[in-house]
Amino acid sequence: MYTAQFRYFRPADLGEAEALFRAGSDARFLAGGQSLIPAMKQRLASPSELIDISRIAALSFIRRERERLVIGAATKHANVAASGDVQASIPALAALAGMIGDPAVRHRGTIGGSIANNDPAADYPAGVLALDATIATNMRKIPAENFFTGMFATALEPGEIVTEVAFPLPRRAGYAKFPNPASRYAMPGVFVADFGHAVRVGVTGAAACVYRATELETALAHRFAAGALDGSAVDPAELASDLFASAEYRAHLVKIMAQRAVRACDG
């Protein structure tokens, strides 16, 4: 399949990327391209300029600071999964990165690209929201709470580029996902993070947009154990229904994945 025609640019730094965007008529930024290129092939997206930011060296890093873990936007999923720093500070995040797509996709796909795309069934948004991360861009800092605004929608303005994602370190965290057997997308995926003073639960692949399951958070704040969710019922009212799963089945899976995520915290 051929995409529509476009002009390809590979800026050396963010300043050049911003200038190219301003000069373009309908420009899009390209990171790993694992969602954007398939969308362009299906002509769901037809940008006139494609600005490849995936090789801007300053966007590709993993840095452990005293109280947080910072990951550059162009860092590949495979590098996050294999990083000793990520495995040591937030092992559940390394595990999540290692569950995205397949090995070839993980070699190209990036954390910045994934969250900027905000696919309703992508893995990273669940971790970013549950871990209360802060998304830095070329313009400002955005708390995860305000970043994911709807299906394939984010708080990013035109020309805004995600530069890094900073994760506070939880006391413990776990991620569990029921992968769609064909696409490997989460159906759903639940990320549980225990910060001691608070428990946060991020759910992806269940609704139109990643969200916090506050009723599960309350139960886990009371007692952080899989069994604490035995009596919880997830309301299917706002959940997605499609040929893969009804809203009621998804609601059931959200609870089961949340329990598995809690169990994953220990190992």
């Binding site: 390809y8 590979r10 390209l30 391209g33 694992q34 290129i37 398939p38 494609l50 490849d52 995936s54 495979a78 090995p103 070839a104 996709v105 070699h107 190209r108």
Partner: peptide
């Protein structure tokens, strides 16, 4: 393989 890593060549432009 691109720089020694497996990638899907239908999901990248040769310019990349």
């Amino acid at each position: 393989h691109v720089n020694g890593r497996a990638m899907k060549s239908c999901t990248m432009f040769v310019a990349q």
